[in-house]
């Protein structure tokens, strides 16, 4: 399968006293989303499923990915994407049984999940992890293979700059 890990787009900096979970995308973040969708279209990634965290910035990023969904594509919210990844999350993602899935989440958990799927080093014990992956906001990682610990291959990293170029076609 193809798995696209998308870090939520720009939502500004957390403000003192404001609820961090309710931070909305900025206009810049919305432009980043637009480029992700254009880039995914350019890469021929018609998505079967979009899974996203319940935090507002991830919900809004997932909403922006809707044009990349295939005609019968579905979306689902998953609280497991707003915390460190665990076996239950990986099992739920695998149970979806689709060929092309995008996951919209947050750092450091998205990078930990990618590292886990590609290397087999469990993200449940981050102190023993020998290396880290970290996505910038509005960045995308592509993995291929079977959705299980150590069974996926890191195929490509698309930082915002690359997405901007791809979006131009």
């Amino acid at each position: 399968m193809e798995l696209w890990l998308v870090r939520h787009a720009d939502a500004g900096a957390p403000l003192p006293g404001a609820e961090d979970d309710a931070r909305a995308l900025t206009p810049r973040g919305r432009r980043q989303c637009f480029r992700i969708v254009r880039a995914l279209a350019h890469l021929g990634a018609g998505l079967d499923h979009v899974r996203h965290s319940p935090l507002l910035r991830a919900v809004q990023t997932a909403e922006a990915l809707v044009p990349a969904l295939s005609a019968h594509g579905t979306t689902a919210v998953d609280g497991g994407l707003a915390r460190a990844p665990d076996h239950a999350l990986v099992a739920r993602l695998a149970a979806e049984g689709v060929e092309r899935m995008a996951i919209v989440g947050h750092e450091p958990w998205l990078g930990a999940l990618a590292f886990w799927l590609a290397s087999g080093w469990s993200a449940e014990a981050p102190e023993r992890q020998p290396a880290w992956l970290e996505l910038e906001k509005g960045g995308v990682l592509q993995l291929t293979g079977t959705l299980a610990s150590g069974e996926m291959r890191l195929r490509a990293v698309y930082p915002r700059r690359a997405l901007r170029l791809l979006a131009r076609g």
Binding site: E19, D21, A22, A24, P54, L55, L56, V59, A76, V77, D78, G79, G80, A82
Partner: peptide, 15 residues
């Protein structure tokens, strides 16, 4: 219930 809780969390933050 974990999915319905995540759904509720997402819904209550929508403007």
């Amino acid at each position: 219930l974990a999915r319905s809780e995540a759904l509720a969390e997402a819904l209550e933050r929508l403007p």
